[in-house]
Amino acid sequence: MSLTTAAPPAAPPRPPRVARSRRRDTDPRQTPRWAIYVPLALYLLFTLVPFYWILLFAFRETGSTSLFPWPLTLDHFSTVWNGAGFSVFFRNSVVIAVLTVFFSTTIALAGGYALARFSFRGKGIFMLMMLFTQFIPGAMMLIPLFDIFRATFLINSLWSIVVAEAVFQLPLSLMLMAGFIRNIPIELEEAAWIDGCGRLRGFLATVLPLLRPGIVAISSFAFISAWNNFLFALMFLNSQEQFTVPVGLSYMLGEYSVDFGALAAGGVVAVVPVVLVFAYIQRYLVQGLSAGAVKG
């Protein structure tokens, strides 16, 4: 390792930045710095202190009143993961979320393509129906869905949540998907048809690769919604081996003597997958929504 480091190449002449920054200072359009940072700091405090509070209790030893997670401990995590059964709840939640994402996204892909690329009789009615379902409250569906699932022996099966969540997620996924597909020029597909591809092959070769960001965004919405679902899981699952993370958390909340360290650790376990997904999609969130169905 006795290589001599080559001298770095001479830096290219920089554009004169002075002029630009001076223009900034005198530019009346520029909002004064304090008008951005003061409200932002206050709002960040409001957002982050609650997150900090749960981390504090999750990592701090029971009995400590320090405002820092000290003495540091991981005991609360082993309590919830092994003792309170969160390892099982976590697995159930993952199974439900993954299956929900798979079904709702696949079905939305097919339906969204039909809405974006075909005009057909009944299209308006179909879209109106999808729009109206957005107004159907989950809580109001508890009773009739319970009856359907009891008749089909899906009560206390993870499939009941998959079906219910996929159906509730479907209209939004479908509308967003149609919006994303509409944004892909149809000329690409037409070129593939001229080359002898059928609808399906043309779609797979030209549309699908370009649709990837849209599919990621839609899957992420479905994942977050399925992971967070509470009421359906509370109503349709009644043995502890089938519980999901939110249901497990709600039972801890309802106990008479709450172990706050374990509760906080359970909350941290519940939030980790959502935060990971969110960190990935948050950059696309604003663009995705402005490109998608929200603007009609």
Partner: peptide, 11 residues
């Protein structure tokens, strides 16, 4: 600031 959007009601 967007992070709480993804957090569930129970959490």
């Amino acid at each position: 600031v967007f992070a709480p959007w993804a957090v569930s009601g129970v959490l």
